[in-house]
Amino acid sequence: MTTSAVRVTRAEYCVIACAEAWRDNGEVLASPMGLIPSVGARLARRTFSPDLLLTDGEAMLVGADGEPEGWLPYRRHLAMVTGGRRHVMMGASQIDRFGNQNISCVGAWERPSRQLLGVRGAPVNTLNNPVSYWVPKHSARVFVPKVDMICGVGYDSAAAAGPSATRYHRIPRVVSDLGVFDFATPDHAMRLVSLHPGVALEEVRAATAFELAGCDEAAYTREPTAEELRLIREVIDPDGLRDREVAR
């Protein structure tokens, strides 16, 4: 801990928690969706995971300086997905206790009360490469007992679908504005790993519509190093856009 005198914001803890998702991933594509995961991926790339690949959000692979180093149009991106050399952090309009995720629609699929994006690449992602999730506003409307449409495949659904579904299926972590979660329990139910400093356990419980494992052992999300804070504040996100995604 080298940042004693500096107040770390909630958004910065979230950035650190997202960056950690890509630690020790090696030479794979980091696909962050959302601003804070994007700052996190770039932070990981500049610090502890220098071999990560990043895109410009369109069709080019870019180095830390933003200069192109390769070509990744959608059709090749899909081969990166199915080849498994990728770790994506997707959003989730709903996510349940076993990691099933929904971005398609709310309500009955036949005639939804709220149409959202559609399944997008969530089915192919979850069956082929590690998929983490980012939820900027943790609430009981997002962390639900059962999702309305399974887009991203959770552990129970993958197990029910058989070996072809479980073979490459992995959900390393879920990061929200309140804490970090994973599925490292015997039945792959969601577990609280760490609270962001300033968050009370009761706050997380109240904002989650199912029972979370690990509540007794949960730690706090680690502090950023001075160098990480400098990179976030001066190099990667100098305009503080991260505070728009997570206030406080």
Binding site: W109, P123, V124, L127, N128, V153, A158, A161, S164, Y168
Partner: peptide, 13 residues
């Protein structure tokens, strides 16, 4: 053949 879809509600709908 595609390794995508099984396990998801794409099969249900």
């Amino acid at each position: 053949p595609v390794r995508a879809g099984i396990g998801s509600d794409v099969m249900r709908v």
